[in-house]
């Protein structure tokens, strides 16, 4: 099997350098672009398995790059952004980015995210059932069990869970959750989503297992590792 190709769109040479060295030692092929324009062209040219995108590019806003790539492809995009700019992360995720990493980040963390993103992309649309560490979801019967015992969820809680599980491992923003659960134009429900999430967590995490992680100010993630 060919080693996966990662396109790195980043304008800082030192960061480019360590990403290239690091990724190549981990048997990834690496293509590098330093501007948004070059990145978009190379994405079309090489169709990589994953894209690492810095949001602070010199020529264009990284979010626009996300949008223009999403217009034609589902290539996983992992956004790299500076800390404290939660708003940018949310925008990038809403625009279709798969994940984000806050600079500075450790290399093992980056590798894990790339692996997860590529795997998720390769996996076919989820089947009628989901199972992980004792949690079983039967999508047809709308039944949720943990280690065999049934968990009673309200319809909204069930919908939330199924949306998060279908995007397992990926951050789902508040806005994306809202639209998936209540449909578009439901921004006014924003505070309630958190309440339902709190209930859902209490029901599922009673046994001490951690299923969800909260990305403060951004959204939620169903953790698979």
């Amino acid at each position: 099997m060919n080693s996966p190709l990662v396109l790195v769109i980043e304008d800082e040479p030192p960061v480019q350098r360590f990403l290239k060295t690091g990724l190549e030692t981990q048997h990834y092929q690496v293509k590098q672009a330093t501007t948004a324009k070059e990145g978009e062209t190379m994405a079309i040219q090489y169709v990589p398995d994953a894209i690492l995108l810095d949001l602070g590019l010199p020529d264009r806003d990284g979010i626009e790059v996300v949008r223009s790539i999403r217009a034609w492809s589902h290539i996983p995009i992992i956004v790299l952004s500076a800390r404290g700019l939660e708003r940018h992360k949310v925008e990038a995720l809403d625009a279709g980015a798969d994940d984000y990493l806050t600079k500075p980040f450790g290399f093992p963390e980056l590798l894990a995210r790339i692996r997860a993103a590529i795997r998720r992309n390769a996996r076919p649309e989820s089947g009628p059932e989901f199972e992980l560490r004792g949690l079983r979801i039967d999508f047809e019967a709308r039944r949720v069990t943990i280690n065999g015992s049934e968990i009673h969820l309200t319809p909204t809680e069930y919908k939330l869970l199924s949306v998060l599980v279908r995007h397992a491992g990926k951050v789902v923003t508040h806005k994306q959750l809202l639209e998936a659960v209540w449909g578009p134009k439901s921004a006014s429900q924003q505070p309630h989503i958190r309440v339902y999430m709190a209930h859902l967590r209490r029901k599922l995490e009673e046994g001490g297992e951690h299923w969800f992680s909260t990305e403060v100010g951004v959204g939620y993630r169903f953790t698979i590792e």
Binding site: Q190, P191, R194, V195, M197, A198, R201, S213, T214, V216
Partner: peptide, 12 residues
């Protein structure tokens, strides 16, 4: 300020 369940903040 937003209305947030305290669970969520503590948990994160």
């Amino acid at each position: 300020k937003e209305w947030v369940p305290i669970d969520e903040v503590i948990a994160s």
